[in-house]
Nucleic acid binder design. Structure first.
Lengths: 143, 143
DNA sequence: TAAAACAAAATTGCACACAATACAATTGCC
DNA sequence: GGCAATTGTATTGTGTGCAATTTTGTTTTA
């Protein structure tokens, strides 16, 4: 009878726990990131910059699955805080290059404690975490 | 040398693919939900209402992991579209009861096709989907 | 080489999320 | 009954997230 609507049950949706989990995790980061004066999105942006030092907006967007509409205001805020600079590429003035500043590099030391603090919140075994990680990247890969 | 910062690598973060996947999936829903004149958040709200017919805001928030700051404007929009009514409980005027209308019920038939359309987008085997589902709920359970 | 096609960012506008705050109704305690 | 604490929503302000459009610059081609 109700089979027609079985697919519409919240409990049968894979998307829902994904969506809810994502928001719950970001919420858990908040107290630690507040200490660094970073939002979650700013944090993952800084992760890329700490690894690469310098990157243009297009590539940054590809790394983070974010577009310029999200990144432009975010990067301007990071620039105002003095952690990055934004300048046009000499070779091609359309390209905007984001570079980590000395101050931005310093922030990395404070941030280094965050992952350990967060890992306490995730109640999965290391193996479960790996499995989850693999499955998520498999989904993302086809995106 | 760089071990100190190993935890900060984007590739070592579980939160990141979770966050990215969540947004990518919501994005894939968009064209189908546009046809129903629903946003993703409105859609999962309707999922609950299609199952329950009636629910108060507090319980709805617990189901969806959303608070009143998100739900209040969202429910007002659903009310304006004529799919739900909002009225205070007689027993306790603080409680707001959201009820599906006849029009809202009709929408369920159109929505019934969405899950099948979406399942094509998820390139996981049924077993992988179940594993992912279980792991996500395990994380959520501790949230 | 001038115009068209293309590309990268920025801008704009709408829709969430959510913390913080406000507010109104209710409950508990004396 | 009176009043403080609690509870359930609503409001406000900030920060995304993204589609659509515009601006600016580059490349292609007629």
């Amino acid at each position: 009878m109700d089979d027609k609507y079985a697919g519409l049950k919240l409990g049968n949706q894979l998307c829902f726990p994904l969506y809810a989990c994502s928001r719950e995790i970001v919420k858990k980061y908040k107290p630690y990131l507040d200490e660094l004066d970073l939002t979650y999105t700013q944090y993952i942006t800084m992760l890329v910059l700490w690894e690469q030092g310098q990157i243009n907006v297009k590539e940054l967007g590809e790394c983070l699955y974010l577009d310029s509409g999200t990144l432009t205001p975010l990067l301007k805020k990071l620039e105002m805080k003095g952690w990055v600079t934004r300048q046009r590429a000499k070779e091609d003035e359309r390209v905007l290059i984001v570079t980590l500043t000395k101050e931005g590099k310093k922030l990395r030391d404070k941030a280094a404690e965050v992952p350990a603090k967060m890992s306490c919140c995730v109640k999965l075994t290391p193996e479960e975490s790996r499995t989850l990680y693999t499955l998520l990247y498999k989904m993302l890969g086809d995106a």
